[in-house]
Design a protein around this nucleic acid. Structure first.
Lengths: 174, 174
DNA sequence: TTTACATTCTGCGGATTTCGCAGCTATGGG
DNA sequence: CCCATAGCTGCGAAATCCGCAGAATGTAAA
């Protein structure tokens, strides 16, 4: 339950006077930290010394920066897998429309373990949620018995995945 | 350009007689490998010895299994970041409808660096693509000048992200 | 300018981890 | 039965990680 990770972190008051920050509360990253992230996006286990050589820093400095990036929640180093290989054969994106405040709906979705991804959007859906399930029955159950019954939910539309073509984790590498 | 990673790998003929395989060509994972993945989902840099202790294997055996999982493409160990923090302020999911064969369209999307995620779906969209951009201009440019002009593309519908609520990488941890 | 303080970097040992390899065991053909 | 393969263990050498002390650097107040 630890590697759950949300883009807009709530600005923690006690570190809000920390470093340079942009107006949304996110710490500003310099070119060196960006370089470190880039290295770790290629290989999450790359040794600190090798990273240091690439970005022009000592091993210890890289280590400190990486630790800080992890502590701040800017970056995570994790294993990512192919869901199909790990036994989840049905995935779907679900578009949701709801009445009133969307936060409770989004929070309820977030609490479901089958839901990998929740985002509030502008457009003809209020919320998009990605669901990873073991089989059709499981998927049907989640959509009909758990999502469509949430208070406020007016309608849903499902897009069952037929073939995943691309999935990268290369932000910042451009 | 290396940590791009596609769920349904094309069955490479030369390793198709490898190990146990399910009918979609994916190697079957036993409980021990699942346990290793789970450990690395919590912390991608966890030492092999610690993982071994958790799953009941020697350090060397864990190392061999991890290497194999990486080689097979079942798993990747990478840094994942919050796009907002790294300077990408506009994200959107784009639903696409197209005529004829969808593969060329999906391939063209896959080739774009702004596109993080491409999936072919059943439902009222043929393809869903997630786009990560620096600003509104950039986003507009990608959608209008690069996606909507692709041969075969009939229509698109965009869902601009307002707030990302959840994003996990915990497949297999349930 | 000077002083005080906080941040970040470097260098360096000691502890830990990784790495490569040889040997052992179990399984499945031929 | 014998051979080949896959997977595990143990172990020593090399590399890496880790904590810490001291040196730069930057900032803010006096």
């Amino acid at each position: 339950m630890q590697s759950e990770f949300v883009a807009s972190r709530s600005a923690d008051p006690k570190d809000s006077r920390d470093s340079r920050e942009s107006r949304n509360g996110s710490p500003q990253l310099d070119a060196v930290s960006l370089g470190i992230i880039e290295q770790l996006q290629e290989d999450g286990r790359r040794p600190y010394a090798a990273i240091g050589k690439a970005v022009g820093l000592s091993e210890a400095a890289v280590r400190q920066r990486v630790q800080k990036l992890l502590d701040q929640g800017v970056m995570q180093i994790v294993a990512v897998t192919d869901p199909l290989t790990v036994g989840f054969r049905r995935q779907a994106m679900v578009g949701i429309n709801a009445d009133g405040d969307l936060e409770p709906v989004a929070d309820a979705l977030t609490a479901m373990q089958e839901v990998e991804y929740v985002v509030m959007t502008a457009g003809s859906f209020d919320i998009l949620a990605e669901i990873v399930c073991e089989d059709d029955d499981h998927l049907l159950d989640v959509i009909n018995k758990r999502i469509r019954v949430l208070p406020g939910v007016r309608s849903t539309e499902s897009f069952v995945y037929l073939k995943l073509k691309k999935q990268t984790y290369m932000w910042g590498t451009r």
